[in-house]
Amino acid sequence: DEVRLHVNGHTIEFRGIDEEIFKILEEAAKRGADEEELRRLAEKLLR
Rank of each mutant, 00 (worst) to 15 (best):
D1W: 15
D1V: 08
D1R: 10
D1S: 13
D1E: 12
D1T: 06
D1M: 11
D1C: 09
D1I: 08
D1Y: 15
E2N: 09
E2M: 11
E2G: 11
E2W: 12
E2L: 14
E2D: 07
E2C: 04
E2V: 15
E2T: 15
E2A: 10
E2S: 10
V3M: 15
V3Q: 15
V3W: 15
V3N: 14
V3Y: 15
V3G: 10
V3A: 06
V3D: 06
R4S: 13
R4E: 10
R4N: 10
R4M: 08
R4V: 11
R4L: 14
R4Q: 12
R4W: 13
R4Y: 15
R4F: 10
L5D: 03
L5H: 02
L5R: 00
L5P: 04
L5T: 02
L5E: 03
L5C: 05
L5I: 15
L5G: 01
L5K: 02
L5Q: 02
H6Q: 14
H6E: 15
H6V: 15
H6I: 13
H6N: 12
H6A: 07
H6K: 09
H6F: 04
H6L: 09
V7M: 06
V7N: 03
V7C: 12
V7G: 02
V7S: 03
V7T: 03
V7L: 06
N8H: 06
N8D: 10
N8L: 04
N8M: 06
N8V: 03
N8T: 04
N8R: 02
N8P: 03
N8C: 07
N8Q: 06
G9Y: 01
G9M: 03
G9K: 02
G9D: 05
G9N: 04
G9S: 04
G9C: 02
G9A: 03
G9P: 02
G9Q: 02
G9V: 03
G9E: 05
G9L: 05
H10N: 08
H10P: 02
H10I: 13
H10K: 10
H10C: 04
H10L: 13
H10M: 13
H10R: 03
H10S: 12
T11D: 12
T11G: 04
T11P: 06
T11K: 03
T11C: 11
T11S: 12
T11F: 15
T11I: 14
T11Y: 15
T11H: 05
T11A: 07
T11M: 11
T11E: 12
I12D: 03
I12G: 01
I12P: 01
I12Y: 05
I12H: 02
I12S: 02
I12Q: 02
I12N: 03
I12K: 01
E13T: 15
E13M: 12
E13L: 14
E13I: 15
E13Y: 12
E13K: 07
E13D: 07
E13F: 12
E13W: 09
F14P: 00
F14R: 00
F14N: 01
F14E: 01
F14A: 01
F14K: 00
F14I: 07
F14Y: 04
F14C: 06
F14G: 01
F14Q: 01
R15I: 14
R15K: 11
R15H: 15
R15M: 14
R15F: 10
R15T: 15
R15P: 15
R15Q: 12
G16D: 09
G16P: 04
G16E: 05
G16W: 06
G16N: 09
G16F: 06
G16Q: 07
I17K: 02
I17G: 04
I17Y: 05
I17V: 06
I17P: 02
D18W: 07
D18Y: 03
D18M: 03
D18R: 05
D18F: 01
D18Q: 07
D18A: 09
D18V: 04
D18N: 14
D18E: 06
D18P: 14
E19W: 10
E19C: 05
E19Q: 09
E19D: 13
E19M: 13
E19G: 12
E19R: 12
E19N: 11
E19H: 14
E19V: 10
E19Y: 12
E20A: 10
E20L: 09
E20Y: 14
E20C: 12
E20R: 10
E20H: 14
E20N: 11
E20I: 12
E20P: 05
E20K: 13
E20W: 15
E20G: 11
I21G: 11
I21N: 13
I21K: 09
I21C: 06
I21W: 04
I21M: 15
F22G: 09
F22A: 10
F22I: 11
F22Y: 13
F22K: 11
F22S: 05
F22V: 10
F22W: 05
F22P: 00
F22Q: 08
F22M: 08
K23D: 04
K23Q: 09
K23F: 08
K23L: 10
K23S: 10
K23C: 04
K23W: 07
K23R: 13
K23E: 06
I24N: 03
I24D: 02
I24M: 09
I24S: 04
I24G: 01
I24V: 14
L25E: 00
L25R: 00
L25F: 01
L25T: 00
L25C: 01
L25D: 00
L25W: 01
L25V: 03
E26L: 13
E26M: 06
E26T: 07
E26H: 08
E26C: 05
E26P: 00
E26G: 08
E27S: 07
E27V: 09
E27Q: 13
E27F: 12
E27I: 08
E27R: 09
E27N: 08
E27M: 07
E27A: 13
A28N: 06
A28V: 09
A28M: 10
A28L: 10
A28F: 13
A28Y: 14
A28D: 00
A28G: 02
A28I: 05
A28E: 08
A28Q: 08
A28C: 06
A28P: 00
A29T: 04
A29K: 04
A29G: 05
A29P: 00
A29N: 03
A29I: 11
A29Q: 06
A29H: 05
A29E: 03
K30H: 09
K30A: 07
K30R: 13
K30L: 07
K30G: 08
K30I: 11
K30T: 08
K30D: 06
K30N: 12
R31I: 08
R31L: 14
R31D: 12
R31A: 13
R31T: 12
R31N: 12
R31C: 08
R31G: 09
G32S: 01
G32L: 01
G32A: 01
G32D: 02
G32K: 01
G32I: 02
G32H: 01
G32P: 01
G32V: 02
G32W: 01
G32Y: 02
A33P: 01
A33M: 14
A33F: 13
A33S: 09
A33L: 09
A33Q: 06
A33K: 04
A33Y: 14
A33W: 11
D34R: 08
D34Q: 07
D34I: 06
D34S: 15
D34L: 06
D34K: 12
D34Y: 03
D34G: 09
D34W: 04
D34F: 07
D34C: 02
E35T: 05
E35F: 13
E35S: 07
E35Q: 07
E35M: 08
E35G: 07
E35P: 07
E35D: 05
E35R: 05
E35Y: 08
E36Y: 15
E36R: 12
E36I: 11
E36S: 13
E36A: 12
E36M: 09
E36P: 13
E36H: 10
E36Q: 13
E36F: 08
E36G: 14
E37V: 06
E37C: 02
E37N: 06
E37Y: 14
E37R: 04
E37T: 14
E37Q: 12
E37G: 07
E37W: 08
E37M: 11
L38V: 11
L38A: 00
L38Q: 00
L38N: 00
L38S: 00
L38R: 00
L38D: 00
L38G: 00
L38W: 01
L38T: 00
L38K: 00
L38M: 02
L38E: 00
L38F: 02
R39D: 02
R39V: 09
R39Q: 06
R39M: 13
R39C: 07
R39S: 05
R39N: 07
R39K: 09
R39G: 05
R39E: 04
R40H: 12
R40V: 10
R40L: 13
R40Q: 08
R40W: 14
R40C: 09
R40N: 13
L41P: 00
L41F: 04
L41H: 01
L41G: 00
L41E: 01
L41W: 03
L41Y: 06
L41A: 01
A42W: 10
A42V: 13
A42N: 02
A42I: 09
A42F: 11
A42C: 15
A42Q: 05
A42R: 01
A42E: 04
A42S: 05
A42P: 00
A42K: 03
E43F: 05
E43T: 06
E43Q: 09
E43V: 07
E43Y: 05
E43S: 07
E43G: 03
E43P: 00
E43I: 08
K44C: 05
K44S: 12
K44P: 00
K44A: 06
K44Q: 10
K44I: 14
L45A: 05
L45P: 02
L45D: 01
L45M: 06
L45N: 01
L45G: 01
L45F: 06
L45C: 13
L45E: 03
L45R: 00
L46D: 04
L46N: 05
L46C: 09
L46G: 03
L46V: 12
L46I: 14
L46Y: 03
R47F: 15
R47H: 15
R47S: 15
R47N: 15
R47M: 15
R47V: 15
R47T: 15
R47Y: 14
R47A: 15
R47W: 14
R47G: 15
